[in-house]
Design a protein around this nucleic acid. Sequence first.
DNA 1: CCAACATTGACACGACCGTGATAAGGTCGG
DNA 2: CCGACCTTATCACGGTCGTGTCAATGTTGG
Lengths: 121, 121
Amino acid sequence: MATETLTINEAAETTGWSPRMLRYIESIGLVVPERSPAGYRLFGAAELQRLRTLRELLNDHDVALGEVGFALRLRTEASLSDAVDAWLQARPVRPQGTTAADWLKREQAKHMRLLGLTTPT
Amino acid sequence: MATETLTINEAAETTGWSPRMLRYIESIGLVVPERSPAGYRLFGAAELQRLRTLRELLNDHDVALGEVGFALRLRTEASLSDAVDAWLQARPVRPQGTTAADWLKREQAKHMRLLGLTTPT
DNA sequence: CCAACATTGACACGACCGTGATAAGGTCGG
DNA sequence: CCGACCTTATCACGGTCGTGTCAATGTTGG
């Protein structure tokens, strides 16, 4: 049988994260490996890749784990995303080049999405 | 002349934020008031409204100031936004109920936004 | 069977966040 | 001119984040 998955220590070895951090990263929902019947974490190729790219993401841009976790929240909690978007959009500081009409269009689209309407195909 | 703007203590009074927090909120770029020639902060109606809605945003959803600041970063730094989006999109874990088509739509909209295209009417 | 590994839970520690307080100094209005 | 306000800068404090380490216990494989 091909050794398809790695244990937490092996995964730590190849990704550069410590076992402790792998558990922490799982706890905030960023990389959640499967479990063996006995509860052992099983890291597959996909998880390993994600762990490496996560490292790059943090290095390249100045981002913290918690912030990526928040971005995840934004992606999964639509109401939160909408509330934050609405607040930011009302910001009087205009990033130059952005037109007010543009904002309105997007705001309307967002409301329609909230109402459960589909965007026109 | 009409008293168009409030000083920091007056703004604190009507918004419920302490003067200290008004300065802090400014330091993370969330509400940045104009300044008088002498450097005094001048809070107008727009800023006061934003400060109140900010308070609501934090109360209603479970969000911290720093997280709103991060959302702002996501909005202004396109490369960061793209990197985070790319990483999250590759996530194999599907939070149940979310459809892949949904993701695709949003992703496409995002790319179009980046390209400066308007949403289809 | 047992050594080597996995699990969860806890304590610890430096760094930063959110917040107040206070100091040292500039500005305003009557 | 002077008291009441504003400014920035700093110290302090509890809380959370990121991370290591350790203990107590369960699992695996030769």
